[in-house]
Design a protein around this nucleic acid. Structure first.
Lengths: 224, 224
DNA sequence: ACTCCCTCTGAGCCTTTTCTGAGATCTCCG
DNA sequence: CGGAGATCTCAGAAAAGGCTCAGAGGGAGT
């Protein structure tokens, strides 16, 4: 499922191809990766075989009705969160949809912004603790103070090491003068070479290339 | 939290006492056990100290606004699902509420049936797998407060030990700061090292690897 | 009342991190 | 090439953070 490194994946099951296309485009713009299905049977197949962070299912579907699709997914122990879209907005319809296993129910016509907000609310649970800064091929896990190498190996950093590396990674192309690093990361500690020392620690843990020295000017983020 | 043997617990934060009373009655009829708060401050206190399966929070509250209350709860790592009630039904209000950390947003006036259906949808998530939480190769039996080792051997935990381990196991990938564990598990007891002590007890019973220390940040679930 | 277990506190010890400074090494430029 | 200044490397002291444990207090069951 969603692990922070890749885009969150959405399964969109909607028979109105025009609407489906618009939604797919909207979702793509928001950074989701979307798989489309235009009937219930296809939706069931993708839902059972693919890995998704959240599903959007239209209630009215050819071949296999939306609620029937939902019921079959749940019967197969698919616990992915599902948002049901429907033109049927009566109370009984909403209650029926939710009790069929939907996590949210949105009535057409709806505003794009609300759909996105509700998707965020559904997806938040899986995303939490997944924020990362890119670090060349690797990544810096901001929650755990760890560097995640391409193969998945993790190297933990101490507090100061992390602060220094994050500062560099926040503006990867900038050259950071010692003086500003000393001020921002080390609260102007009295020693002159505190920055050098921590650059040395980072290089010892992560390889010589994590930090590039720009002679006379300062340091710059390198590649792991 | 909800463990199947007792009623699901709801925190209701609503300043309109008449509405609050009606809702509490409705919830009681549906088999929920309800705590009421009539202002945000009281809601915050109950939300931080009590154990709830779901919270219903009115958006307009005296002393502490509903969204502010929600933000503070989330800041203290309270992940309980929250349904926000509001007379404000504009698109921007709905989006704002959801992005503030609500799991659902219901506009007043609403039908009781829909509120109940949405509560069921939120509550369903905690019930699922309510018998055991995975713990690496082992499992935590929520009914019996026991850890079940791969071979079937069982180790009984005391109340606090169980609460601590369950809190860690509920979000296995997250890092739990001492402060939030102290608040959520030990009701802010005065001693500084209460969390350390119980981590020590767990490690003594279950092996050093049950809980991983992340220096300077907190603890994380390990593997048994 | 007695026992047993659970809960909590706090003190002492151990580990990791942070910081300093001194010598070795490198880079730039005349 | 050679010197000045910049940078690197590293050991060890100080501080912060974490671990272990003994014992006091309290509640439940006998």
């Amino acid at each position: 499922m969603h692990d922070g490194a890749t885009k969150p994946r959405v399964l969109l099951v909607e028979d109105d191809r025009e609407l489906a296309g618009m939604l797919a485009e909207l979702l793509a713009d928001e950074g989701y990766e979307t798989d489309e299905a235009h009937d219930g049977q296809r939706g069931l197949h993708l839902g059972l075989t693919g890995q998704y962070d959240v599903m959007i299912i239209d209630r009215r579907l050819p071949v296999l009705d939306g609620l029937e699709l939902l019921a079959r997914l749940r019967a197969q122990a698919v616990t992915t969160r599902v948002l049901v879209l429907s033109a049927l907005g009566e109370l009984a319809d909403r209650v029926g949809g939710l009790d069929a296993g939907a996590d949210d129910y949105l009535v057409k016509p709806f505003e794009a912004e609300e759909l996105l907000a509700r998707l965020r609310a559904l997806g938040r649970r899986d995303m939490e603790g997944a924020e990362c800064l890119p670090l060349g091929a690797a990544a810096l896990d901001l929650q755990r103070h760890e560097v995640v190498l391409p193969r998945g190996e993790r190297i933990t950093l101490s507090g100061r090491e992390f602060e220094l590396l994050r500062t560099l990674a926040q503006r990867p192309k900038a050259i950071h003068p010692r003086a500003s690093l000393r001020t921002n990361v080390f609260a102007d500690s009295t020693g002159e070479s505190i920055v050098d020392t921590y650059v040395y620690y980072l290089r010892r843990k992560l390889g010589r290339d994590v930090v590039r020295t720009v002679h006379g000017l300062g340091y710059q983020l390198g590649a792991v």
